[in-house]
């Protein structure tokens, strides 16, 4: 019987009556043209970065493929090997288009890795605080408050000053600078969830505390976590670029976007703008598109704004 009705509904061209939460979320997300465009741009950036070895004319870090003869060529020049350098070349003759895509790989890896690790650590600590309560919660939240009273950029700078250069060290510094944001968010949401009836019901059924926290409370805290996660990941990418630009982040052997911009800085005053500007545009597109997506996610996932 029910099959027949569904068929009738479909043949009449009406939308299906039952909508899963995910479908509704998807429909609401794509209502905003700006957010859809931003998601598209970010997707394209990730795709370009992943595919970099196959779609760039050269591997900019393979010395056999780079010629010093090509140094500091303006955009659109022809390289020694015959292909066109649409974005010009840098001081040591690397094709900037290739260098940017390879740089994005490093920047995105560092940003996403530190974002995910900080999320997991912050989430665990926040959940413990919310569910344990009492002294443990007071101590944890005092530490979180303390850390949030320092700007994240300053904490990251302190950490790299203490840790030194390198991919692993930058990721560690960013995680230390950002975990507290996740912990605060999770704890605030989990406190609200803990008071709800389904948790009480689960407790009456004798389900273990561990299971209640991770299988029942945590999934209901995901919405704000995802929002904070996108914004913090954008800020991690931007922070890494800043530190690398200052020369205290990634070394020259790990040329992220920030390192590329720093390398181009010395040519800027002599009018060779492209060496710094194009990597900068790539960084900008990445950070702004993630932020726009995050901003819209906040609206879509906020239950108070539900229509």
């Amino acid at each position: 019987m029910s099959d027949v009705t569904t068929d009738n509904a479909l043949s009449a061209g009406e939308p299906p009556v039952v909508e899963t939460p995910f479908q509704r979320f998807r429909a609401e997300f794509f209502e905003s043209r700006i957010a859809t465009a931003a998601l598209g741009v970010f997707g394209a950036i990730v795709l370009l970065a992943v595919l970099a070895p196959w779609i760039t004319p050269q591997n900019p870090y393979d010395l056999a493929q780079v010629s010093v003869m090509d140094g500091r060529l303006p955009p659109g020049s022809e390289a020694f090997d015959g292909y066109t350098m649409w974005l010009g070349s840098d001081g040591s003759g690397r094709d900037l288009y290739s260098a940017i895509l390879y740089g994005l790989r490093i920047s995105l890896t560092v940003g996403l890795a530190s974002g995910v690790i900080a999320l997991l650590i912050g989430m665990a600590i926040g959940l413990v605080a919310a569910y344990a309560g009492g002294r443990i919660e007071a101590i944890i939240m005092r530490i979180v408050d303390l850390q949030l009273s320092f700007p994240a950029s300053l904490v990251a700078l302190m950490m790299v000053a203490a840790l030194g250069k390198g991919v692993d060290k930058i990721i560690l510094a960013l995680v230390i600078a950002q975990w507290a944001y996740y912990a605060r968010t999770v704890r605030a949401t989990a406190l609200v969830e803990r008071g709800k009836e389904y948790v009480e019901a689960a407790q009456c059924l004798g389900i273990s505390r561990f299971r209640i926290v991770f299988r029942h409370i945590l999934p209901n805290c995901m919405a704000p976590l995802i929002v904070v996660g996108t914004v913090q990941t954008a800020s991690a990418i931007s922070l890494e670029a800043t530190l690398s630009f200052l020369g205290v982040g990634l070394p020259q052997t790990e040329p992220s976007i920030g390192v590329l911009i720093a390398n181009g800085f010395e040519y800027m005053l002599s009018g060779r703008y492209w060496i710094s500007v194009f990597p900068g545009v790539a960084l900008l597109l990445t950070v702004v598109s993630i932020n726009l997506v995050g901003d819209h996610l906040r609206d879509v996932l906020n239950p108070r704004l539900k229509k």
């Binding site: 670029a241 800043t242 800027m268 005053l269 900008l284 950070v287 702004v288 932020n291």
Partner: peptide, 12 residues
Amino acid sequence: SLPTFWVGLMLI
């Protein structure tokens, strides 16, 4: 959302 150092470069 713009990184400070990038805005600084553009200003220069």
